[in-house]
Amino acid sequence: MTSNDSRPFGCAHPTSFEEELVNAMNNFANSADAPTFDAPGITRRSRRKRATAIAGISAALIVAGGGTALASITGGSDAPKPAPAAAITAAPAKDAATLLFAHSAGMTIPIDLLGASLADAKGQIEKTQTKLGKVSKVDCGKYGKPGTVIQVDPHSPKTVANGDTVNVTLCAG
Rank of each mutant, 00 (worst) to 15 (best):
A102Q: 14
L99K: 00
L118C: 03
L61M: 10
I54L: 11
F17K: 11
S6R: 12
V166R: 01
G56T: 11
E18R: 15
T108L: 09
M1C: 06
I111S: 05
V22W: 10
T165M: 06
I88N: 13
L113Q: 03
F37N: 10
K134P: 00
G123Q: 15
A105C: 03
A64I: 02
A51Q: 07
R44F: 09
P157V: 03
D112N: 12
A39F: 15
L61D: 11
G56R: 12
T98H: 08
A105Y: 03
A93F: 00
S58L: 14
N27E: 08
A90F: 04
A51F: 03
T148M: 08
S104D: 15
K127C: 04
L100D: 01
P80T: 05
A32V: 14
L21K: 14
K81G: 08
V160D: 01
I54M: 08
L21D: 13
G65M: 11
A60F: 11
T36E: 10
F28W: 15
K49D: 14
C11L: 12
P35A: 09
I57S: 11
N26D: 13
H103V: 10
T68P: 00
T15Y: 00
A59S: 12
T74I: 10
D78G: 08
V138S: 10
E126G: 02
